[in-house]
């Protein structure tokens, strides 16, 4: 089992405090959901952990070993799904997969995954949003990184692929720890073990949809 501990995350842009002394723990087998209104710091949090955004302060430990933000990417311990696609749009799916997995057996895990045969000959730029998101998740999920940070994996996805993605995430959590953020709260709440809201820079743990209303992420009539 792997353990990711992040403590004392602080981030401000000028006078605007985005995250205030946030702490977070994620271990193999867990899916953690992060909610928050636009601009509350959800994506910022994931980027700070991944190391693509510099924190005012942060302490990251993986399996009790301290690791600097600069070394997260070279250490290959955390994979990251950004909001916008990271795959080259001009390439065909069957040409993209070997870029990440030179080994034939690893490639087959992607090629023989559910639904992939339907679009493996298409160009990345021709895929539907659901197909694209699913492919990206399959790719980063099959890397050996023990933790995944997912920024809006369900956003604008057609229902059939939402279910496929949820099944995939539940399968991946058997060997990984996952932190995800998305506005599609029903989908997130279906698969997560722990959830919290970011409000005014603070992390508030929530138990259910009523708490999302309580902490003003949702209106009471939603």
């Amino acid at each position: 089992m792997n353990l990711l501990e992040i403590t004392n995350i602080n981030k401000a842009y000028g006078n605007k405090i985005i995250l205030k002394n946030v702490n977070l723990i994620c271990k193999t087998g867990e899916i953690i959901g992060v909610f928050g209104r636009n601009g509350s710091g959800k994506s910022t949090l994931l980027k700070l952990i991944f190391g693509t955004l510099t924190a005012d302060s942060i302490l990251i430990k993986i399996n009790s070993e301290t690791i600097s933000q600069n070394n997260i990417i070279p250490s290959k311990t955390i994979a990251y799904l950004p909001q916008d696609t990271f795959l080259p749009k001009e390439k065909r799916v069957r040409a993209v997969i070997p870029l990440f997995f030179p080994n034939g057996d690893d490639q087959n895990k992607i090629f023989y995954a559910p639904q992939v045969s339907n679009f493996e000959k298409a160009k990345v730029g021709e895929l539907s949003l659901g197909q694209l998101r699913y492919l990206e998740l399959l790719i980063i999920g099959n890397l050996n990184h023990p933790f995944l940070m997912l920024d809006e994996p369900f956003s604008m996805i057609e229902p059939i692929y939402k279910d496929v993605i949820k099944d995939l995430l539940l399968e991946l959590k058997e060997s990984k720890g996952i932190i995800l953020t998305d506005h599609y709260y029903n989908d997130v709440l279906q698969i997560t073990h722990k959830n919290f809201v970011i409000k005014d820079g603070n992390k508030i743990e929530i138990k259910n949809k009523e708490d999302l209303v309580k902490y003003e992420y949702l209106n009471s009539n939603e």
Partner: peptide, 18 residues
């Protein structure tokens, strides 16, 4: 033109400076 593709490299362990 391709900034977001950096995340492919990040996920493979390559930073921009590398």
């Amino acid at each position: 033109f391709k900034e977001n593709e950096y995340y492919s490299y990040y996920n493979l362990g390559f930073t921009k400076s590398i």
